[in-house]
Design a protein around this nucleic acid. Structure first.
Length: 938
RNA sequence: GCCUUGGUGGCGGAAUUGGUAGACGCGCUGGAUUCAAAAUCCAGUUCUUUCGGGAGUGUGGGUUCGAUUCCCACCCAAGGUACCA
């Protein structure tokens, strides 16, 4: 009986589905384990072999944990809102919901063929109204919350209103907009309702504001910072410009410190943590207020606030630089400098973000003609503008300390500005001195002779004393723009009242379903696609969306036209899996208290500063609300590496339709062209007939062969359609089966590393499965031999360690060694083969189930207890000692492990080869490590 | 530039507290089986060699009886970040 993977795999996939083998229950006497892989966006292209890598690893772990007696939650779903379906809709008129459904069905078919132990009864789709109802619900909770910095948590907005009633916002320590005015309770009560609402928006955790956004004209939408790569859109590579627009924004900055602190409590990869730390960009320092020196009268004495991380160097400040966009520039520029300043501003505005980035080396700036007064020395300091100062960071102004900051130093040198030295015994004639650790301050009045840390403290103290500064922590993290001018996303549960103020719709009326539109493009007036909807007005009496014609601004109001961004739906899906069909609540407290959090999360590192940061933010918010029990959603996270493609190249003569085999190119001028990888065999030989048929251009091509073959060139590149190096898992399943594919993906190398795919190698794991199958053809109940037991138990030990360490590649090797050994031992013993089937089951579940049946079982192998390794079978009595000379192993010698150092030494010295190695010399020293090694020196 | 990860045969990779470098698999070479091929099985496969050996884990140093592993300096590749005050 041959190993018929086709029948076996189909049979067990059907069995698992019919018996709901992997359905998780929300209560159990077993310990819980929640393992999750990032859900996919169901694209039209389907899966290629790179996609399932993380799913396979997660599945192995999930199946292993089931064998280990855990109640395992292992769900899967779809991140099904997104741009490609909408772009397709724009081109074809096909409703994105239909495209999405088709794509999901194809994904499901492909996933099912790989034998995953997903609990499909818990599937979620972010574009399903029953799901996005709760995305909208979270938005409402955020809108109704503010961040109390004293309590260090989000609180209900009604608490803030009553605070304002009592004492205004004086002395309030809350996260809010920078331009929030101060007011007393009396003033608060005098504000109109609209004014009050405007104030409250400055505190809400999601708020509407005019913001400088990244506008992508080609996509017709705004993009978040993490959706822009090198100044162009991540999707499509279109240019992005800065533009002011009214947008919904998430006040993620309120959580900056907690997002930073939380990283210390979770087991996530260090590079990922580092990129979040960078992205949040905490810097400690001080704000310092400088006053401009008025030319004429005191009314022109403006404060300029700067942020500095080096308040200790304040006496070294010899000029200030403002961002060209700084609001004060026009007011302080002197008549004499007006033209050149305006010119400079015009020039920098013209330069695109991209040019500014590409050109970091050149120094530019102009003098405004104005001066500011040094807070301590009262000396006048010239005020410059320069585009190295960014309007969006800090206050958009810096105090320049050329002796202590290289950028300021370069700027000063370039424009011949004074560089006073405030460091004791340091030469600054060549470059700035930035070494904080060795700083001792000089020429700085009360800071003289102080080291860095003490000087910082003292400087802040003195600044506070004169009311011109205070200690401050600054974050690079910006609030996240949450509006998208797209159709295929979650609608906001928001309408605009008669005053144009946003009002959220009460939770009980959710979901607000996405309306139908004629066209998916922006309207002629430039409104988002929802502007095309005719039934998109909110009736506050019936609490439903009604025809726009009924808008009267009394009881029927226009609804929000923006939709939510791609990351909205993915920021809480992991909790929804715990109780996915709940229509009363986002999830029951029983469910979330049972599952708590994700124990193992597997996904790509490209989500480091997007999904994984936003999700942590929402989790912390929901924790503050008492809705989730943990303020970090995933204990452990693993980044799977990318599987790259191995492209094949043919070399066409630049003039003729002749192709030269790789090693015959010589110095001919050839054009390398991608060839479809499936036309090339494991020895890099091209199937010429198939190649000719592949594309009409090559029909009459000539081939110059070497030794009868056309040899292609190989190169590792990203897997992509245009490079003709995409490998479809369906094709692999057809030819070798899902178990072979699963094993091979793991066998390729460490999970976290990126590695090239080369289909040729799969025959290795496939013949391993065939050998495994053969072992079970004649099972008997004979007593296992000592050797059999040793092989089995060392395999159990190694495989268990490997799974716990996520080192799946080495387990596959271990299985191969085990099967090779058992085959040569002619092992047929059930006592060995039964535990072996369980060991293999997480990796190759279909064959394991079938072997389980052959072994005489009626039930699925899925919950069979994982075998325990017993050390007693691994005890050795002898050791093959490596005998080295000066650290180099020259030969080995089998010796009893009972021997002591002296006995080993005399045995080794008595050996012929030892004497041959020494050639008469007397060893200086002999190192004997019993059980390990012998090293002879001399 | 900065941060992170990595660099080992023709290829993917292994070597768990410093102790036999190259496990396992692909590919390749030879052989068995076959009319032939596929499949399967057996042997070999880091380089070099005067067949005794010698060299060897990106490069150069160091620590050690002994370094792929630890330390220092540098080179290269991939990913992240980009004038962050």
């Amino acid at each position: 009986m041959n190993y018929n993977f086709k029948d076996i795999e189909a049979k067990w996939q059907k069995y698992w589905s019919q018996h709901q083998t992997f359905k998780a229950t929300n209560n159990s006497t077993k310990p819980k384990f929640y393992t999750l892989s990032m859900f996919p966006y169901p694209s039209g292209a389907g899966l290629h072999v790179g996609h399932p890598l993380g799913y396979i690893a997660g599945d192995i772990y999930a199946r292993y944990k089931r064998h280990k007696g855990y109640n395992v939650l292992h769900p899967m779903g779809y991140d099904s809102f997104g741009l490609p379906a909408e772009q397709y809709a724009i081109q074809t008129g096909q409703h994105p919901a239909i495209t999405t459904e088709t794509n999901i069905n194809r994904y499901r078919e492909q996933l099912d063929r790989l034998g995953f132990s997903f609990d499909w009864s818990r599937e979620v789709r972010t574009s399903d109204p029953d799901y996005y109802k709760w995305t909208q619900w979270i938005f409402i909770q955020l809108f109704n919350s503010w961040y109390n910095k004293d309590a260090d948590r989000a609180e209900d907005i009604s608490a803030l209103e009553s605070l304002f009633d009592k004492k205004g916002n004086v002395g309030l320590n809350a996260a809010c907009d920078d331009d929030t005015p101060q007011f007393t309770s009396v003033q608060w009560k005098q504000f109109s309702k609209v004014e009050q609402q405007k104030i409250l928006l400055k505190y809400r955790l999601t708020y509407l504001a005019d913001a400088e956004v990244n506008w992508c004209p080609a996509l017709g939408t705004v993009l978040a910072n993490d959706e822009i790569v090198n100044g162009v859109s991540e999707r499509g590579g279109h240019p992005v410009i800065r533009k002011k627009m009214t947008q919904w924004i998430m006040r993620i900055t309120a959580y900056a410190q907690r997002l930073l602190d939380g990283l210390e409590t979770i087991d996530w990869p260090q590079p990922l943590k580092d990129s979040q730390i960078n992205w949040i960009g905490r810097s400690e320092g001080a704000t310092v207020v400088f006053y401009t020196i008025p030319e004429v009268n005191d009314a022109d004495r403006y404060p300029i606030e700067v942020f500095t991380t080096r308040p200790d160097t304040i006496f070294g400040a010899s000029f200030m630089t403002l961002a060209p966009e700084h609001e004060l520039v026009s007011r302080i520029t002197t008549a004499g400098q007006k033209d050149i300043v305006e010119d400079y501003i015009k020039q920098t505005a013209k330069r695109s973000e991209r040019e500014r980035m590409a050109d970091v080396k050149s120094i530019s700036g102009v003098f405004t003609g104005a001066y500011a007064e040094h807070p301590f020395t009262k000396a006048p300091i010239p005020i410059w503008i320069g585009d190295y100062v960014l309007a969006g960071y800090g206050t958009g102004a810096v105090m320049a300390v050329p002796c202590g900051d290289q950028r300021d130093y370069d700027f000063a040198k370039h424009f011949n500005i004074d560089i006073p030295n405030i460091f004791k015994d340091v030469d600054i004639s060549e470059e700035a001195f930035e070494d904080k650790g060795n700083t001792v301050i000089a020429n700085s009045d009360f800071l003289n002779d102080l080291p860095y840390k003490k000087a910082v403290k003292r400087a802040i103290f003195e600044l506070e004393k004169i009311g011109q500064g205070r200690g401050k922590i600054n974050y690079r993290l910006r609030d996240a723009v949450f509006s998208r001018q797209r159709y295929w996303g979650e609608p906001f549960p928001v309408f605009y009242d008669a005053e144009g103020m946003p009002q959220v719709i009460a939770s009980e009326h959710l979901p607000i379903p996405l309306p139908e539109v004629e066209k998916y493009l922006p309207t002629e007036t430039g409104e988002p696609p929802l502007g095309n909807a005719s039934v998109w007005a909110w009736d506050t009496r019936s609490h439903t969306a009604v025809s726009n014609e009924l808008i009267d601004h009394k009881s029927v109001f226009p609804l929000e036209l923006n939709t939510m961004p791609g990351w909205a739906g993915s920021s809480q899906y992991f909790n929804r899996y715990m109780d996915p069909q709940n229509s009363e609540a986002i999830y029951s407290q029983e469910a979330v208290n049972y599952w708590q959090d994700v124990d193992l999360y597997i996904g790509g590192s490209e989500h480091a500063t997007g999904h994984l940061l936003y999700s942590r933010f929402w989790q912390k918010f929901l924790f503050d609300q008492g809705i989730v029990p943990k303020d970090e959603f995933a204990k452990k996270l693993i980044n799977q590496g990318m599987i790259t493609g191995t492209s094949a190249f043919v070399y066409k003569d630049s003039k003729t339709n002749t192709f030269y085999s790789k090693n015959l190119i010589g110095n001919k001028t050839v054009i390398p062209l991608h060839a479809e990888v499936s036309l090339v065999n494991a020895s890099d030989e091209l199937d010429i007939d198939a190649f000719k048929k592949w594309q009409p251009d090559y029909k009459d091509a000539q081939f110059i062969l070497e030794e009868g073959h056309y040899i292609v060139g190989r190169e590792v590149e990203k897997m992509s359609k245009s490079k003709y190096n995409v490998v479809n898992p369906d094709a692999i399943c057809d030819e070798y089966g899902a178990d072979s594919l699963r094993l091979y993906e793991m066998f390729l190398g460490p999970l976290e590393q990126s590695k090239p795919w080369n289909t040729a190698g799969i025959t290795g794991v496939h013949s391993f499965l065939k050998k495994l199958w053969k072992l079970y053809l004649e099972i008997d109940v004979s007593e296992p031999s000592k050797e059999n037991l040793k092989t089995l138990h060392k395999t159990i030990k190694k495989v268990e360690e490997d799974i716990e360490n996520f080192s799946f590649n080495t387990s596959v090797s271990t299985f191969m060694i085990c099967v090779n050994e058992l085959t040569s031992q002619k092992c047929r013993s059930k006592a060995i083969l039964e535990p072996l089937a369980i060991l293999v089951s997480p990796y190759a579940p279909h064959i394991a189930e079938e072997l389980w049946v052959i072994l005489g079982h009626q039930e699925s192998i899925a919950e069979a207890p994982f075998p325990k390794h017993e050390a007693k079978y691994l005890v050795e009595s002898t050791k093959e000692y490596p005998i080295s000379f000066n650290g180099k192993m020259r030969f080995t010698m089998e010796l009893s492990l009972d021997l002591n150092k002296e006995e080993i030494e005399s045995a080794v010295m008595g050996h012929d080869k030892t004497q041959a190695q020494l050639q008469g010399r007397t060893p200086k020293k002999i190192i004997v490590v019993p059980g390990k090694i012998v090293n002879i020196v001399g």
